[in-house]
Amino acid sequence: MQQPPVQLSVRNFQKSFHGKAGEVRVLDDLSFAINERDFVSIIGPSGCGKTTIFNIIAGLLEPDSGAMHYRGEEIESLRGRVGYMMQKDLLFPWRTVLGNVLLGLETRGVDRAEAEARAREYLKGFGLSGFENAYPKTLSGGMRQRVALIRTLIMDPDILLLDEPFSALDYQTRLYLEGVLKDAVETYHKTVILVTHDIDEAVALSKRVIVLSGRPARVKIVHDIEIGATSPIAARGDARFSGYFHSLCAELDIQTEKTA
């Protein structure tokens, strides 16, 4: 298999936070590369700084040191060019479904009529037409997260940063949304970085899985997942699925023993 070109590379990220208990080193010399149209999952013990990585990439935090390159060009951050999705759907409660989907296009100053037409098209594509004027609180958790996904995709971001986007949902809804995500990524040719603590989800969705060590976070190992199934449910039925699952579990187990 030919290796696709690198889209985003992160080199030697270091980040410490100053808390009451003194300095806490969260990232220590962290480096990894994301290829074009990659689907990479980052797993690791909880509190190991996965969200911090995303916040740096999205431009919400500055690293103490380290560099980021996007398609070979050194950049400060990907602010305004990433699609950031978090565990909370973060729908604006005072905006309707349509208003929420339009949020990013509004900040970009896209023409209202054009933006609305595009939003309605996306809503239709994700089976949410008829809910344009509903307020988020009237929707189910799965629908809300689907709206959040549309809000992210409609901006046509260079990279999707998904921070445990489905972890607050029940298992059936999660399976369904994993499928929706996988399809959307294929349709819109997106690159995805997914932070999850769900090994099962990481194996079912990703092309590669980066395993981080406990705090301070370092890349422990990168696993290529060569299932290539069409859907996350089919992936779970693949003969190699449990092999990947167990080797990733083993990686994490060793670390929990070490840090405990």
């Binding site: 916040n55 919400l60 950031y84 978090m86 973060l90 949020l103 900040t107």
Partner: peptide, 16 residues
Amino acid sequence: VDLQSLLISMGADKHQ
């Protein structure tokens, strides 16, 4: 703060 962070990640400025 999360709603504000989301907007910033979308490229919004302080006024927005």
